Computed example of a mutant assay.
Amino acid sequence: MSEEYGIGATAVGIKAKDGVVLAAEKRITYGFYSLSSSGKKVYVVNDRMALASAGVIADMQTIAKILRVNAKMYELESRRKPSIAAMAKLLSVIMFNRRIMPFIAEVLVGGYDEEGPHIFVLDPVGSLIEDDYAALGTGAKMAISILDANYSKDVDVSGARKLAINAIRAALERDPVSGGGIDLVTVTADGVSEEEIKVSAVVG
């Protein structure tokens, strides 16, 4: 979808045995025109959930706000946090209902709940797949090759973090419209941790 609209992006999600890692590069582009190198494509939803996305930045921001609001409403009404699967399915329905004029965004929803870590992949019309790892955007072909070659179900969040960085780095080296550094979120039973890896530390 991102390639069809000429929107550069690379985002990856990895499920580890003790949590999940979501990461994305920071460059905002349309075609080969770079608008910014400080865009945010990884969003914290609550202290157990986050999402990463590739697509139009306004649509990514809107999707993140929708998920945050619905997660908070659920928590206030039920007095417990929603499961990752429930929030991913809700977002799937919302995106499907917009299929005539869809959000121009591919989304990874990841988090840790009572059932453990989860990664869900959604396309712009709401197709929903749970997987161990995934890559989205124009740099996905490069990133997924790194994930395919190095992923193990026994990986911990520390190893998944390194793998996510290497996957994004592969895209930065080869995809001309990905770059600007990396935003990364780790979600475990202890909560959410955000970090930004500066452009000087990676290619692009």
Rank of each mutant, 00 (worst) to 15 (best):
V12K: 02
Y133V: 01
Y5V: 02
L163T: 05
M49E: 10
L51K: 05
P176S: 13
P124W: 02
T188K: 00
D154Q: 01
K41G: 07
G191I: 03
A54H: 13
A88Y: 05
V56Q: 11
D131A: 11
E75F: 10
G137C: 03
G181F: 06
K17M: 04
E195R: 05
V185K: 01
N150G: 02
Y5A: 06
G55M: 04
A50H: 11
I104Q: 13
G179F: 11
S38D: 10
I94P: 04
R161T: 10
V202K: 09
V69E: 11
V125Q: 06
I197H: 02
L172K: 04
K65A: 12
V192F: 10
E106D: 14
A143S: 13
S37R: 06
S200W: 00
D47W: 09
L163S: 06
S34N: 12
M142D: 11
Y33I: 13
L163Y: 07
R99H: 08
G39L: 01
P176N: 12
S193R: 14
I146S: 01
V42C: 02
A54S: 15
M1A: 13
A50R: 13
V42E: 03
L184S: 12
A135V: 02
R27N: 02
I182Y: 05
I197L: 04
M1F: 10
E115T: 13
V155Y: 06
A167F: 04
A170L: 13
A11G: 03
G111M: 08
I28Y: 01
P102Y: 14
I182V: 15
A189K: 15
Y33Q: 14
I104D: 05
G180N: 08
R79F: 14
N150A: 05
A140L: 00
D47F: 09
L184W: 12
L22I: 10
V45T: 09
L91D: 09
P82W: 08
I104W: 07
H118N: 09
L67M: 15
G180S: 05
I94S: 05
L108P: 03
S53M: 12
S36H: 10
R79V: 09
I57E: 13
L67V: 15
S145P: 02
D113E: 05
A86F: 11
V21Y: 04
F120H: 15
V44N: 07
L91Y: 06
I14R: 03
I104Y: 09
E114L: 11
R68L: 05
V157K: 04
M95H: 08
V192M: 11
A167S: 10
A135D: 03
K15W: 01
Q61Y: 08
P117R: 08
V42N: 06
A58L: 07
G137L: 00
L128A: 09
